[in-house]
Amino acid sequence: MNPIHPQVPKTLLVAPDSFKGSLSAVAICQSVEKVVKKMGWPIQVVSRPMSDGGEGFVDAVLYAGLAQSVTLEVQNPIGKAVSATFAWQPDSRTAIVEMAQASGLPLLSQDERNPLKASSYGTGQLLVRAIEMGAKKIVLGLGGSATNDGGAGALQALGFQMLNSHNQSIGPGPKGLSELSKIGFEPQGQITLERLQSIEWVIACDVTNPLLGPLGATAVFGPQKGVTPALYSMIETSLQHFADLMERRFKRSVRNLPGAGAAGGMAGGFVGFLDAKLVSGFTLLADLLALENLFEEQKIDCVLTAEGKIDEQTQYGKLPAQIALMAQRHHVPCVAICGKLEASLQDLPMFKALHSIHEHLPPETPLEILLTQTPQNLTKTLKQHLPTWLAN
């Protein structure tokens, strides 16, 4: 029996992160909309796909109709051509760029991952186009990177010269940084150093790791990019050398700055070179989407959020918890769905309900099977539980 009375319409706010490797946040929202329409339920769905600055950051802005899309061909982390998109707000001349579009780990196969030579140059190409369009403010979302170059590649694309002791340009990645001797600048058309310094640079990320050390970029995020124990020391030393030269050239120290280790140290590079400001990716996107205002402008009956994995760590600033706490401030229940559930409501009391979309499958089901079944299992979960979530 359907608990939703046909004469009592309900409003559901859908604000998910992505199921990395299987469904984007936009796709999750579209699945909810499709199920509600197919079932004929009297539910108004308000979709706001979310991101913490990494994958889906630009899509979230575009899906909400807050910007125009600009697409161009750039280099991926190993120099191959890839199509990448950023969001452009012409009235405020603001570009919203997601480094994962050009320099993200999903762009490379397992065999292509090379942390010694992976470069963020393609992200710089996106930034160049934004500046050529007249950007006064650039919001750079970080997360999900394949690179560990401190943002050096992106900075080279902007005109910064990274030279060795023979006054030649260094190669890509930490291997190139190990040979860095001098930092210069060569204007490229309208992109002068003064022009770069006049832009308001905002870095959106939700990690607090420093650039260096046991909690730094290489130690914590390096292994997923292919950093082995044998490579660790060389890459860490290269980033330390980069930080030393950066501090000497620009008089800004970033080695212990919380968040500087985001995206293989790109956050630290952009703070050091361009005095960028670090902000919470979730907070920035929530402000852009005016998420708090939604609760004040209409009666929302329930919030649905999502992430690939929900566990005890979710409570420590992860996106679903931040969505749940926002809903709680407005006395609205919040439900979270995920691919892998390793927490209870006792662990995460800010939620009304927690569900794995694969809860009907045996626990030992291989990950590759779960990933392929994600779309249909999401649909099954929504059909089974959504009316109950919205019941008073």
Rank of each mutant, 00 (worst) to 15 (best):
A27R: 12
L13Y: 09
E33K: 14
M50Y: 02
T71C: 14
I43C: 10
T85E: 09
A25R: 02
K20R: 12
R48L: 15
P42A: 08
W41N: 09
A60R: 05
R48D: 04
S24C: 04
R48E: 06
K80I: 00
T85W: 02
K20T: 03
T71H: 08
V14T: 07
Q30H: 12
I43N: 14
G56N: 03
S18G: 06
I43K: 11
V36P: 10
K80Q: 14
Q75M: 11
V35K: 03
K20N: 05
V35Y: 00
I28Y: 01
P90L: 07
T71G: 06
P77N: 11
V82Y: 01
K80N: 12
V82W: 05
V58K: 01
V26K: 07
P90C: 04
G53W: 08
V14R: 10
V45D: 11
L12N: 12
Q68A: 14
Q44I: 05
G56S: 06
A87K: 10
G65Y: 05
V8M: 02
Q68W: 06
K38D: 13
Y63S: 14
T11Y: 09
K80A: 14
N76L: 10
A81G: 02
A60N: 01
C29M: 06
K10T: 07
I78Y: 03
A67C: 11
L23D: 09
S51L: 00
E33L: 14
V74S: 10
S18Q: 10
L66S: 06
L23H: 09
G40W: 10
F19T: 13
S69W: 03
M39A: 15
W88H: 01
C29L: 06
V82P: 00
S31T: 15
I43R: 09
S51P: 02
V45S: 08
G21C: 03
A81I: 11
W88F: 11
S47K: 12
E55F: 07
V61K: 07
T11L: 06
G53T: 07
N76E: 07
V32S: 07
V45N: 05
G54T: 07
G54Q: 06
V8H: 14
A87T: 12
M50C: 02
S51E: 01
V61N: 08
T11R: 15
F86G: 04
R48P: 06
V26C: 09
R48T: 13
G53N: 06
Q7Y: 04
Y63V: 00
I28M: 02
V35I: 13
S47M: 10
D17G: 13
G40Q: 13
F86C: 03
K20F: 03
P9D: 13
S47V: 01
V8L: 12
S22V: 06
E55C: 02
L66Q: 13
G79R: 05
L72G: 13
M50F: 05
I78C: 05
L23Y: 10
K37F: 02
P77K: 10
K37Q: 15
V26I: 13
A67G: 12
G65C: 12
P77S: 08
P16Q: 09
Q75K: 15
K34P: 00
D17F: 04
I28F: 01
A27K: 11
A25N: 03
K10S: 08
V82K: 04
V70H: 08
S31N: 06
K38P: 00
N76V: 10
G79A: 07
P49E: 03
Q44G: 03
